[in-house]
Design a protein around this nucleic acid. Structure first.
Lengths: 238, 238
DNA sequence: CGTATTATTGACTCCATTCAAAGATAGTGG
DNA sequence: CCACTATCTTTGAATGGAGTCAATAATACG
């Protein structure tokens, strides 16, 4: 636990989004002693691989990452996109082995709450435990939404993806209306369960309908409410 | 905390599946003091509604239940099926309000680990905290698998559903090869993102291919390995 | 500047849905 | 015990949304 790779959570701009959200100053002090900064990774580098031993919960400090799981056929599925202040590593909680891989989507730095310190923290900072459960509850909510979304038509899936990305970026102090996708059409399609051609066609359609402007991987949302309407119109099934 | 509605976890046959899994005798004693038995519900009755305040983590003691979430259109989606020994209520962890409903699929009884005792337990029984995280990690794994599955063709989804049900029942001491679905075709379809007609057709097809026998809601798996092959054959996409 | 990767666009195909109608099952009361 | 109704299930035929295949265009990269 050298001084060198420590970070101070109270000096981090993400303190109100990330792990220490909701903790007192003293509590943040305590976890600052334990949270380690990890080195920065480049696009394509692995934060952890599937099968790696669980080493703790990680937090994205800057950049972004994707969680990638493999199915029985060996196909890869992008399960989640992670933005600054978001936690990852929960997939290692149940078996102590990671069940999916985490890969940097761009130059990305992150912090680590080591697994071996967790029992200790549980006893000393119950509010941290609550916070961790809250984060894991949030992950489950996201999964729930994705699951519901996976039954909806392509248009809605892509619209939801853009809206949710926009909102999450906004909460982190980035522009909600203009952003660069760190994913290829292929990757977006994979994540949403669509063919890359479908993603391309829909982005064009959204642009023709004047809801967004697309220039390569740069997206400008020009009519957010129209985009949101796509999620609310239509009646149907069950 | 009256004596009347307490249950003893060490006398429960589910001790090695449910919450106390992995705890010492003394620890199980401690949580037995706190876990409450709740009254039995009939098919269709709600364990909790969407929007209800989070009251704690629940465990199915006998029977089964479904988690039901609503989307923006007001359509309902069956997110999960819960069998004896499985925990539910995690959807209330992040916001203290349940984000989906839990409904009994048959006559069902369950236990409650009250929310207001949790901070206390975190400090006194760190291994329980770990166990809870482990359970919540398992939930996330299941969600992950469902998410991956949602991108696969209808046949695979239904095959996986039957296999996973069979395996889970087996672990709980029920027959792995013969069971009664507590869900209608409609509900199975809803859960898997398929039309009820598709479910009906596929069950027939599986029967014609001599992998299962269907009689109404009674299923007999006659060739498990053939069923499993459906999940492994085919190459393709990403 | 040339090569590799990524994105667009069109034509065709197919899996699963929808619509529709008939058949089976379970539950209820006479 | 049987008739009656409501619900659930099966089956067929037609439609359509998204995938696949294929070829071209644009962009990034060394």
């Amino acid at each position: 636990m050298s001084k060198l790779n420590q970070v101070s959570c109270n000096e981090c701009g993400l303190d109100n989004i990330c792990l220490p959200r909701g903790l007192s100053h003293e509590e943040i002090e305590s976890i600052s002693q334990i949270v380690k900064a990890k080195k920065t990774l480049q696009r394509g580098e692995f934060i952890y691989h599937e099968g790696d031993n669980f080493r703790g919960i990680l937090a994205i400090k800057s950049g972004s990452a994707k969680l990638v799981g493999a199915d029985q056929h060996g196909n890869e599925h992008i399960l989640n996109i992670l933005l600054p202040g978001e936690l990852l590593g929960f997939d290692g909680l149940s078996t102590d082995k990671h069940s999916c891989a985490a890969v940097a989507l761009e130059t990305t730095s992150f912090c680590l709450l080591p697994a071996d310190s967790m029992d200790n923290l549980f006893q000393n900072i119950p509010s941290l435990t609550r916070e961790l459960f809250r984060h894991s509850g949030e992950k489950m909510l996201e999964d729930k939404n994705q699951l519901i979304l996976s039954k909806r038509p392509a248009e809605e899936r892509l619209a939801y993806f853009l809206i949710s990305l926009s909102e999450r970026l906004k909460r982190r102090g980035f522009s909600a209306s203009e952003f660069k996708l760190s994913l290829s059409r292929q990757e977006i399609g994979n994540h949403l369960g669509l063919a890359l051609e479908t993603v391309s066609r829909l982005l064009k359609k959204f642009q023709e309908d004047e809801m967004i402007m697309v220039q390569n991987r740069f997206i400008t949302i020009t009519d957010l409410s129209a985009l949101k309407k796509l999620l609310q119109v239509h009646e149907s099934d069950f």
